[in-house]
């Protein structure tokens, strides 16, 4: 460190300097030898302490790297994985779930079905605010248990107003209340999703069947999409999800309900691990009132098409022009 650099200016540093202060002939190469050894020793001590302090300060990082494998670090974007690479990834994720959560799961990767475009509709006339859908989502999607995370938030709205400002999600009383109606909100699977546009690394995109997904292994966790979504549909994994082995839903898929890593974004996927295999979303099956209608918007015979054609349908925040594929309606 104490490099007697010949290029050093011959002036004793800057005016505020006490280094070779006493030496009137700083160009003298052996000027003040005692001082320079003392300085060298001091500097050596300083440097050693400095390095030690840096190592200590950053030590928590090493505890983390034990959790993140090299394969995970180097994993390519979902869309760039070959068939073999993908199955290796799925195999690794299954193994890691076993190691970290103690559960045997299958992680599949169902692809969108040709020509299908999913839509969802919700009947506000009969929804009674029981929150069974939100709970079903919590279980189905292997959400973090302590935070009671769910992709669905149910608002208790005041009759006579559509303004969420007069709504309340924290209601805690028997439902339904006579002067209220109930409005569950989840990802609207926008046709023009701003969350997808803003993502700097294309970690989130819209699939051909209309579902907006996140590659949890590609997301860098900048949360720009969360700022961009006007429907509060995105959730961030502020810490590693906690969930007991016995409670884990073993029927998982890469793009939907597998247990998400810490520090990445997640969102409703219309339960694509179910719906792409011909089943219905968990929230729909849990709904005791039959308020929810799910189906293929491209199929003229589907129930959802009938609802859209015959009911008084609206979408949330239509003025933003994002064309939600999630519809609300009232009975006649």
């Amino acid at each position: 460190m104490n490099d007697p650099d010949p290029d050093k200016p011959r002036t004793p540093c800057s005016g505020n300097c006490s280094c070779s202060g006493g030496s009137p002939t700083p160009s003298d190469p052996i000027g003040n030898p005692g001082g320079s050894t003392r300085r060298a020793v001091l500097k050596g001590i300083g440097a050693t302490l400095g390095v030690a302090a840096y190592a200590k300060a950053l030590a928590p990082l090493t505890e983390l790297t034990q959790q993140t494998s090299m394969d995970e670090f180097l994993q390519k974007h979902y869309k760039e994985l070959t068939k073999e690479e993908l199955s290796a990834v799925l195999e690794r994720l299954t193994r890691e779930t076993k190691e970290q959560y103690g559960a045997d799961v299958t992680i599949a990767d169902p692809k969108p079905r040709e020509g299908v475009k999913f839509g969802y509709a919700l009947n506000l006339s009969i929804c009674n605010g029981c929150r069974k859908c939100a709970e079903a989502c919590h279980l189905e999607n292997n959400h973090d248990r302590p935070s009671h995370q769910s992709y669905i938030r149910v608002f208790e709205m005041t009759k006579g107003s559509m303004d969420f400002e007069k709504g309340d999600v924290h209601y805690d009383h028997p439902v339904p209340q006579p002067d209220k109606y109930y409005m569950p909100v989840q990802c609207q699977q926008c046709e023009h999703p701003p969350c997808v546009d803003v993502c700097p690394v294309e970690a989130t995109w819209k699939e051909p069947d209309g579902i907006v997904v996140v590659d949890y292994n590609w997301c860098i966790g900048c949360r720009y999409c969360e700022a961009a979504c006007p429907y509060h549909a995105r959730r961030f994994n502020w810490q590693k999800p906690e969930i007991a082995a016995a409670e884990i839903n073993p029927d998982q898929s890469y793009l939907s309900n597998r247990i998400r890593p810490q520090g990445v974004m997640e969102k409703c996927t219309f339960c694509l691990h179910r719906t792409r295999n011909g089943r219905l979303p968990a929230c729909l099956e849990a709904c005791p009132t039959g308020a929810r209608v799910f189906g293929d918007l491209n199929d003229p015979e589907s129930e959802i098409r009938w609802v859209l054609a015959n009911k008084r349908v609206f979408v949330l925040k239509e003025e933003l022009g994002l064309k939600p594929q999630f519809f609300y309606f009232f009975d006649e």
Binding site: V201, A203, C219, I220, G221, R223, N237, Q262, V264
Partner: peptide, 10 residues
């Protein structure tokens, strides 16, 4: 960033 280890994705 939630995942600074993935900075290279950018």
């Amino acid at each position: 960033l939630g995942r600074p280890d993935r900075f290279w994705h950018m």
